[in-house]
């Protein structure tokens, strides 16, 4: 062989494997999007092109209410989780090494390790006790639950950004008469911002599509978009679900793309 360097692409079956994997990843999504334009009542039998299901979903007040609630929860939970995660990341990277640092790190990432259903049941019981004792109801419980499991998702990119940031920049700021607050405000935070935005976006997206924990924690009439869709599918499946899913998909893709360009510009 003329070219002796190793390349995975030259292994037998590489192209075929790649095509199969990509098909497995994206074919179901394309099918879902395709059938959202189905004129037929069925989600599986093609009956011609139509935008009816989008119009129907748009006019459906239940879908609208669920969407608004989902957005309220996702935005609030993402803000809370990002604020907490930023403090946690600063606390675990911007100080001297301390005993039990690894333990703290694992504790912060606990929601990533504990099975979601366990967290869901735990929160259901825990919040039940609080509701019983205080009598306080409302959407706050769902927001708190979402904020809790979003923290590690916000924490990881912020911590990664901080670890890549030279501590001598903050030292230089204090040398140039900046107080602790000024150092944070004018040096640490602006440099950390891409990480904070990444963390917030990730937390938002994770909160937006959560089903398991929401289903357990929510009270009656507190349907988010995912739990509403789950409820619909128990009754009857129409391409309306496809239409809603497609819109959710588009929202997520737009957000992530915006985020990608935003951080790339900031890194230059």
């Amino acid at each position: 062989m003329a070219d002796r360097s190793f390349s995975v692409a030259k292994l037998p079956g590489f192209t075929a494997t790649a095509i199969i994997v990509f098909a497995a990843l994206y074919l179901p999504i394309f099918t879902l999007v395709g059938y959202s334009f189905n004129a037929n009542q069925s989600v599986a039998v093609w009956g011609g092109f139509s935008l009816d299901w989008y119009a129907k979903a748009w006019a459906n007040t239940q879908v609208k209410d669920a969407t608004v609630l989902s957005l309220i929860i996702a935005v609030t939970a993402a803000v809370i989780a990002t604020a907490v995660a930023t403090l946690a990341a600063l606390g675990t990277t911007r100080r001297k090494k301390f005993r039990g640092e690894t333990f703290i790190y694992v504790m912060i990432n606990q929601p990533l390790m504990v099975p979601e259903i366990v967290t869901a049941v735990t929160l259901l019981i825990f919040f039940g006790i609080i509701k019983q004792a205080t009598g306080i109801q409302g959407i706050g419980y769902v927001i708190l639950a979402h904020a809790a499991f979003c923290i590690p998702f916000a924490y990881l990119p912020i911590r990664a950004r901080l670890e890549g940031m030279d501590l001598s920049l903050e030292t230089a700021a204090t040398d140039l008469y900046a107080s602790s607050w000024q150092t944070f405000r004018f040096v640490t935070l602006p440099l950390l911002l891409p990480g904070v935005i990444a963390g917030a976006m990730l937390a938002f997206v994770i909160s937006l599509d959560d089903v398991v924990i929401t289903e357990f924690v929510k009270s009656g009439g507190q349907d988010t978009l995912p739990t509403y869709m789950l409820g619909q599918m128990r009754r009857q499946m129409t391409p309306e679900i496809n239409a809603v899913s497609t819109m959710l998909l588009v929202l997520t893709v737009v957000l992530l793309t915006a985020f990608f360009f935003l951080t790339r510009k900031n890194d230059q």
Binding site: S168, L169, T171, A172, L191
Partner: peptide, 9 residues
Amino acid sequence: FQSYALFPH
């Protein structure tokens, strides 16, 4: 500073 530590932003 040895690394200059200029503020990149």
